[in-house]
């Protein structure tokens, strides 16, 4: 079954901006799905329409088969959302924010308290339950929004850049939490600017740019299309002369750092041999950027050309 079904979705804002140009998208039940795109591509508008915070201009949206136009209440019950920006009252206590959300979904007080305890403990916020939300750190605020979104046990969870601005340790904890949640059966749609995050977590990826879906496929297949990688070499000593190789384009970043483009069809040993022959000693080597990031840039820039 489709957790999310979008057909011909369009949005034109009152100022004439065509934010979405008739996109189609399907997310299968149980999937961990990434919706990627540059700023202003239409990600937040898409999420806004799914969560009924933005009125669509045309098209159809169904959540677990429930049409937003005809069966909105049932659709909303299936959906949990963690928005990009903090959207809770900064004057309320953590526990009140979570239990009130349960109340909006018509959960009785006892159930609300039990679930609030469960999720606040899972997200390491239980000790902060009586704190006023504005006193929380950025990472805690993000986790609070996740706890709030889960309180009614949604089947589909949408996270709009959930790890923005949180440190790497908390980010990895959140990844573990989301992976576990997905294994328990919750379908997750994630937008992120950390493409490493999408590569590690998501099985399927759609890339949206300029209001159109320009790619929608399995993460593995998408990465398989990457035919080249750029490696960065840190040298032990500064280069005394300019070096060139016919098969491996070399860019000199500074006198002890080289960038080398390696096609998948080539053998990198060949390049090491070349370095040895030129008596160049390498201290360390790394990928210039995450693989998905390179592909993303290639696809988005390709679209613009």
């Amino acid at each position: 079954m489709d957790a999310l079904y979008i057909e011909g979705l369009s949005k034109t804002y009152s100022n004439g901006v065509h934010a979405l140009k008739g996109i189609d998208l399907r997310v299968k039940e149980g999937d961990f799905f990434a919706l990627l795109g540059p700023n202003g591509a239409g990600k937040s508008t898409t999420i806004g329409i799914i969560t009924s915070l933005v009125n669509k201009s045309a098209g159809k949206v169904k959540i677990f088969g429930h049409d937003l136009d005809t069966d909105l209440v049932a659709a909303k019950r299936c959906l949990g959302v963690v928005p990009q920006e903090f959207n809770f009252s900064i004057f309320e206590k953590v526990i009140d924010i979570v239990t009130n959300q349960a109340g909006y979904y018509a959960l009785d007080r006892k159930t609300a308290m039990e679930r609030a305890e469960k999720f606040l403990k899972q997200l390491s916020l239980w000790e902060k339950r009586d704190s006023i939300s504005k006193t929380l750190s950025g990472g805690m605020k993000r986790r609070l929004m996740i706890a709030r979104a889960l309180i009614h046990h949604p089947k589909l969870l949408i996270l709009d850049e959930p790890t923005a601005g949180v440190d790497i340790e908390i980010r990895r904890d959140m990844w573990r939490f989301l992976t576990k949640l997905n294994q328990e059966g919750v379908t997750i749609i994630l937008t992120t600017h950390y493409l490493e995050e999408a590569e590690n977590l998501c099985r399927n990826i759609a890339i949206i740019d300029n209001g159109d879906i320009i790619e929608n496929t399995k993460t593995k297949d998408l990465l398989g299309r990457l035919d080249r990688e750029i490696f960065v070499f840190d040298l032990k000593e500064p280069l005394s002369k300019k070096i060139e190789h016919p098969k491996y384009p070399i860019t000199l970043i500074d006198e002890t750092t080289l960038e080398v483009e390696v096609l998948k069809t080539n053998n990198i040993n060949e390049f090491f041999q070349f370095l040895t022959e030129n008596q160049i000693q390498v201290c360390s080597m790394r990928n210039k950027s995450n693989r998905l990031e390179e592909l993303f840039m290639y696809l988005v820039q390709g679209e613009k050309k």
């Binding site: 915070l53 209440v73 019950r77 959207n87 009252s89 979904y105």
Partner: peptide, 9 residues
């Protein structure tokens, strides 16, 4: 924070 209510049923 009104969005908390608007996204709910």
């Amino acid at each position: 924070s009104i969005e908390e209510i608007l996204v709910s049923p």
